[in-house]
Design a binder for these strands. Structure first.
Length: 227
DNA sequence: CAGCTGATTTCCT
DNA sequence: GGAAATCAGCTGG
């Protein structure tokens, strides 16, 4: 929570065999470990979130919704599972590679098993506009879980602290898509930055399957008079 | 543009 | 069994 706004404007860089991509952070969210019902660490340590309970400065990468990766920076001392989700940014280096990954053209990157080109060309601003998009553009997956982001020699690293407060200042508001502790304003972003992801409130999904026990009323059909 | 849906793993009840 | 720190594709206005 303390360091989250300071990450805005910092640069996250990932160097792989395929090349280098760097993103200037525009949006982050803080999660307060065991004290925060919205945190993955709220219910204790699991195989997935183990890195969060380790020393600060490392990457916690998780897989969610069966297809997406998101990356956090572990912030508090060993045993204290606080972390900051890196939600969005602007690609400032390695643009062609970022675009290729996001369009599904690079094998072994992106969400598990996804392949083949998708539809229309992507806007440059959308390449890292959202936590899963940011990971895909940078080529981050569970292999980077635990990486030391503060080591300048690490393939995945963060450069900071930034030189100055971003022009336009910093805004804060509720976190995106969380159902619990939705009222706390622990999301921070650079005011007016177009790379900030659109805010979405948590919305429970309706019961998916249609009725089998009930017969829905027959809808009126065109050309067929009602009664 | 708002709203809804499918995809699909990890963890929880 | 079902929700979740998401995204893209599609529909209707």
């Amino acid at each position: 929570m303390q360091v989250a706004p300071d990450l805005l404007g910092c640069v996250l860089t990932h160097e792989t065999a395929g090349g280098l991509v760097a993103v200037a952070l525009a949006e982050v969210e803080a999660y307060d470990g065991r004290n925060d019902p919205a945190s993955h660490a709220f219910r204790g340590r699991t195989a997935r979130n183990a890195v969060m309970f380790g020393p600060p400065g490392h990457a916690y990468v998780y897989f969610t919704y069966g297809m997406h990766f998101c990356v956090n920076l572990v912030c508090h001392r060993d045993g204290d599972a606080s972390a900051v989700l890196l939600r969005a940014g602007r690609v400032i280096d390695g643009l062609p590679l970022a675009r290729a990954r996001r369009s599904g053209a690079v094998a072994g990157t992106g969400a598990a098993g996804r392949r083949g080109p998708r539809g229309a060309a992507l806007r440059e601003l959308d390449l890292a506009r959202g936590p899963a998009r940011l990971c895909e553009a940078l080529g981050i997956d569970r292999a980077q879980d635990g990486a030391d982001l503060c080591d300048p020699a690490s393939p995945l690293r963060i450069s900071g602290p930034r030189a100055a407060v971003p022009a336009g200042g910093i805004s804060r508001g509720p976190r995106v898509g969380v159902s619990r502790a939705a009222q706390v304003d622990w999301r921070f972003w650079i005011t007016g930055d177009p790379a900030v992801s659109p805010y979405r409130q948590y919305a429970p999904r309706r019961a998916g399957r249609a009725v089998t026990a009930e017969v829905p009323p027959t809808p009126p059909r065109p050309g067929v008079p009602g009664r």
